[in-house]
Design a protein around this nucleic acid. Structure first.
Length: 614
DNA sequence: GCCGTTTTCGGCCCGACTGTTTTCAGTCG
């Protein structure tokens, strides 16, 4: 019995082992795609298996459906067992070594019998690699260094989005100070707003790429230059984060920015669409293929005539590209001066960066069904979910109020912890009343409207951590789980549903309670919980705390399908943390949250009416 | 392996960089 994540892991392992077997790369990709598809399932895997509807899922055909069903039911699969038996158990970790791929591993296995990281290290140290065809001294050194680094760093260290964005902003500012920089921007998964980031991708337009690359190397945090080519430079920063800088002439800016924003899956699908419509797409731009260069794909010729870009005037053929770019022979470059123009040329709505994950956005954009009014940080009029020195915040009510006011906010909710959150200085009824007095006093000194609220613990039985007569006097209640997070799925589901059925339940805080890299979400049947939330007309919080970024975008899309309203929150314990709004907004956008679905973009009176616990 | 408004076969994204090769294969994103 495996859940969908277990099944996905098994499929990935099969893919990797097949790779070591030298299998057809497209078959390997099919397993990877299958793993992604299973992971991304909205519907219960068990239901799909029982209903024999797995093949309805794009990327899953007959063969994979059978294997997935067996993995799900029994946790075991003959193919996987055979592959595991064929390859020594230590061989998969070899794929983790930088610059070492399946081909080289196979060669080393054949020539030297290397079957583990330890074998490899010993062979390098003894200088035996350089004897193998295709390997030299440099490769040997590089691999040794790679092993050392692999051992030194904690497994798969990724940085939090907040840190990546801060570092990225500094890098872009640094590059912008070079006279060689015409434009410069952070791309990659940081631009897509992924909750953790493995490396930074920076794109730049310049008439003098080598000068800009040299300027990058001057960035104070650069520790090592890993690669340096005509258009691409890779460095490693102190702390281990890798930065790729790509530089192109201004006319290729838009397609390069698009190329480096990703994700890979989004690009693969997009390029297939380009191909179908008689183009080829790469970071060098969009090229119209000559009519006779159909590459054996019969549909290409007709697709070209029907898919001529008409949406904008930006997609007009220009002269042949520069000599140093690699255009497909006989093709014609299409002028693209923005990412939106690129999508338009392919007959699509523009896809916001945060949505480029191949999670249905391409199909929606082709159908004209993509939301065009995703919420942005600038839409927000009120800061929600703020703590003060009354509980575990580090700033007073007055400090928080002035900070929110300085940011142009119309209102601010003060939501200190409730009594049961003893570790966080939760308030009892008496202290709560004294806090109200202070809020009243501060209100006289500031323009920003202060709302009296609480972050109430959802207790073990689903009740909230205040008597009803207090809850009813509060203006805003964020209800969160802070304890007993290891309940089983059944208990947790009942706890949440019970909580949400109370009329005073208005905002679900810390939805599913993850701590990035530290704690998995608690277990609950999310669809059932969201149904309860929708029925009670409650809202879901998008928490901008860098270590949380709850709710997960996938959960937000399930909420969106139920028309559940959203609150963008900062969960601020200090004035500086009001800046987390940026992270909340980017996370909401990843969940396809539209402006109209967000409560705290509304004016004060409307917001207050919408969240009032009654 | 999957997929299909001309398909059940024959496609399946594309280029930069490195090291080792004397013209390219492997890896990476």
């Amino acid at each position: 019995m495996l859940d969908k994540f277990g099944v996905a892991r098994a499929l990935r392992e099969i893919g990797m082992l097949l790779e070591l077997d030298g299998e057809n790369p497209f078959k390997i990709r099919a397993y990877e795609n299958g793993a992604r598809a299973v992971e991304a399932l909205d519907e219960d895997l068990a239901a799909l298996v029982t209903g024999e509807r797995l093949t309805d899922v794009p990327g899953i055909g007959e063969a994979l459906a059978t294997k997935i069903a067996q993995l799900h039911r029994t946790g075991q699969l003959d193919l996987l067992d055979r592959l595991r038996a064929k390859h020594p158990p230590g061989v998969l970790e070899l794929l983790e070594v930088p610059d070492l791929g399946p081909k080289k591993i196979a060669a080393l296995q054949a020539a030297l019998g290397i079957a583990s990281l330890a074998d490899l290290e010993a062979a390098c140290a003894a200088g035996r690699l350089r004897g193998v065809k295709g390997f030299g001294e440099k490769t040997e050194q590089k691999i040794l260094e790679g092993i050392r680094r692999l051992r030194a760093r904690p497994a798969q260290r990724r940085v939090l989005l907040a840190d990546a964005l801060e570092l990225g902003d500094r890098l872009v500012a640094h590059l912008g100070r070079s006279p060689a920089a015409l434009r410069c921007e952070l791309a990659g998964s940081a631009r897509r707003g992924k909750e953790t980031v493995g490396d930074l991708d920076v794109v730049a337009a310049s008439g003098d790429p080598p000068a800009l690359a040299a300027h990058l190397v001057q960035f104070p945090l650069v520790e090592e230059v890993l690669a340096r080519g005509d258009t691409k430079t890779t460095v490693r920063l102190a702390g281990g984060l890798q930065v790729d800088l790509r530089v192109v002439p201004p006319e290729d800016w838009a397609t390069l920015l698009h190329h480096l924003t990703g994700s890979k899956a989004h690009h693969v699908k997009l390029r297939g669409i380009a191909r179908d419509r008689g183009y080829t797409l790469s970071e060098w731009g969009l090229y119209r293929l000559p009519a006779n260069a159909a590459k054996g794909r019969r549909r290409t010729a007709t697709a070209t005539s029907t898919a001529t870009p008409t949406a904008t005037a930006t997609a007009t053929p220009t002269s042949t590209p520069d000599a140093d770019t690699p255009p497909p022979e006989g093709s014609e470059k299409v002028r693209i001066d923005s990412e939106a123009a690129l999508y338009a040329a392919l007959g699509m709505q523009p896809v916001p960066a945060e949505l480029r994950e191949d999670q249905g956005e391409i199909e929606a954009a082709l159908a004209g069904a993509l939301p065009e009014d995703l919420v942005a940080a600038g839409d927000v009029r009120g800061m929600v979910h703020c703590h003060t020195t009354w509980s575990d915040g580090r700033a007073t009510v007055a400090d928080m109020a002035r900070a929110a006011e300085a940011l142009g906010m119309e209102y601010l909710t003060i939501t200190d912890h409730s009594r049961s959150a003893g570790y966080a200085g939760g308030l009892d009824a008496d202290r709560l009343r004294r806090q109200w007095d202070e809020i009243d006093r501060v209100q006289e000194q500031v323009k920003v409207k202060l709302l009296k609220g609480t972050e109430a613990d959802i207790l073990e039985d689903g009740s909230l951590d205040w008597p009803d007569q207090i809850l009813e006097r509060l203006e805003v209640v964020v209800a969160s789980i802070h304890s007993r997070m290891k309940m089983d799925e059944e208990q947790m589901t009942r706890r949440l549903v019970a909580a949400m059925r109370q009329p005073v339940f208005k905002i679900w805080g810390h939805a599913m309670g993850r701590l990035l890299g530290k704690r998995d979400p608690y277990r609950a049947r999310v669809e059932e919980v969201l149904d309860a939330l929708a029925a009670s007309r409650g809202a879901i919080e998008v928490n901008g705390d860098p270590e949380r970024l709850e709710a997960d975008p996938r959960l937000l899309r399930l909420a969106g399908a139920r028309r559940i309203p959203v609150v963008l929150s900062v969960d601020a314990h200090s004035p500086a943390a009001l800046g987390y709004l940026r992270l909340a907004a980017i996370t909401a956008r990843r969940g396809w949250v539209r402006r109209g679905d967000v409560l705290n973009v509304r004016p004060f009176q409307e917001f207050r009416a919408a969240v009032r616990p009654v």
